[in-house]
């Protein structure tokens, strides 16, 4: 069957099976930033943004995305340039193995879309569904805080 949606500001039609989870559809269509980590909605590596909110795509039926607006990590950059959030992650050492990074970026992006002035606790809460085994979360949390500050300055 066909699935119509908007992804990273592009209108797309994907061929899907009714039984497909969203992660498999996205990966099959080249959005490989969406990572497998646990298949049970616990690790957050497969996080994507659907209609403005962060969602675990591994436990989300693809069919639910009909007419939805999605953002994956591939959609965060603008005109080939890293977004402020992405830049802060690179610059501040928030990336190690990077496997959880796309999911973390999207959780943070969803937070900043909703709340451009987050407190430390808001950031920690927003990232609490993204397991990272490398960083101990110290630098990712700092990077999100710094990004929020820088984005305010940029406006």
């Amino acid at each position: 069957m066909k699935l119509n949606l908007k992804i990273n500001s592009e209108t797309k039609v994907f061929d899907i099976d009714i039984r497909d989870t969203l992660i498999d559809v996205l990966r099959a269509n080249g959005y490989t930033s969406v990572k497998h980590g646990c298949e049970t909605g616990e690790c957050g590596a497969c996080t994507v943004i659907i209609n403005g909110t962060a969602v675990n795509s591994c436990i989300y039926p693809a069919i639910k995305c009909e007419d939805a607006e999605l953002i994956t990590c591939e959609g965060l950059e603008k005109d080939g340039k890293l977004s402020i959030l992405q830049e802060k992650f690179v610059e501040m050492g928030a990336i190690q193995c990077g496997y959880c990074t796309p999911g973390m970026l999207l959780s943070a992006h969803a937070l900043l879309m909703r709340n451009p002035n987050p407190q430390l606790e808001d950031v920690k809460d927003a990232l609490s569904g993204n397991y990272c085994r490398c960083t101990g979360y110290v630098k990712p949390v700092d990077a999100v805080m710094a990004a929020a500050k820088a984005m305010k300055g940029a406006k």
Binding site: G41, E42, G44, T47, T53, A54, V55, N56, Y60, S107, A110, D125, A126, S128, G129
Partner: peptide, 12 residues
């Protein structure tokens, strides 16, 4: 609600 697992789950 805020103590309910994770943001990604709460959103769905």
């Amino acid at each position: 609600a805020q103590r309910f697992v994770s943001v990604q789950i709460r959103n769905v």
